[in-house]
Amino acid sequence: MYRTTSGEEIFIIDGHVHFWDASPANQRNIHGKQFIDCFFAYHNALSPKEQHWPKAKFEKYDAATMVRDLFIDGPVDVAIIQPTYLKDFYTNGFNTTGQNAVIAKQHPERFILNGAFDPRDGELALDYIHYLKETFNIQGVKLYTAEWKGASKGWKLNDADAYRCFELCDKLGIRNIHIHKGPTITPLNKDAFDVSDVDYAATDFQNLNFIVEHVGLPRLDDFCWIAVQESNVYGGLAVAMPFIHARPRYFAEVLGELLFWLGPDKLLFASDYAIWTPRWLVEKFLAFELPDDIKKERGVELTLETKKKILGLNAAKLYGLNIEAKKKALAKAPLKAAAD
């Protein structure tokens, strides 16, 4: 919970966090090392200096650190924990649903645990979705369409196999489909940022919500165009958020476009923890104002009401979270400052 200087309470949902293990002991090969090195460079490149972590901590942090950064020192009330398997790079995976479940189970009121699947697994993907629902009662998934697998050079949300998975998600009540549209490793020269497949899937699965992570950057215009057409397409602000510090004018321009095209009800705050920590992002965002020229040109405002929607109310709606009930539940399960 964040309290403004005037005493107003702002409920915060962090839409994208990870509990990863990229320690040298878990690195399967050079790619595992280089992958976390790249994340570490993102962390250093866009965080304020005083927020920089030592490398060893960044490679592997414990549950107590994460709980403190999000909920004790940080203002987050509830965090959506997203998996990234990467079993080719890490012996036990980078952060699988099973790994994430360890911390989520310790703090069931605090975490929403999401799963993942690959439609190219065919029947096995359907089995796995059943398993995730039965074991973890997931309400959402995080998908990577650009990943290579054997002879396949990625997949599309409107592939027949993917549609079978979405039909099952719909049936089981897994309504929130987060899609990573952003930098990828392989394929080497495919346009992995292409967001056009979202258009088909969103039209055909009106019961599902499609949250495009990184708001489609660097395909912001394509993403905005699709999100305007489809009422069930949302933008996740992971990776866009830290620009608020490193490049505030750029952040303002992007936010101006998003507010102009999508409006205030379709955007979700996210830190992408542990690449960035939520406290400074939330503080800077609440203090942030759009420059006059952008407000005037785009006819948009970044009011406190809009900020509250982006910081929590929009995600609460997608995940069916009753904020008043959640506040009471959280009050009954206080976190110890020294969780370790």
Binding site: Y42, N44, A45, R247, Y250
Partner: peptide, 17 residues
């Protein structure tokens, strides 16, 4: 806006690396 996203990231990443 699309190009600057890459541009800012790449410069930062190079310096950090």
């Amino acid at each position: 806006l699309n190009m600057e996203f890459n541009s800012a990231l790449c410069r930062g990443l190079l310096a950090a690396r």
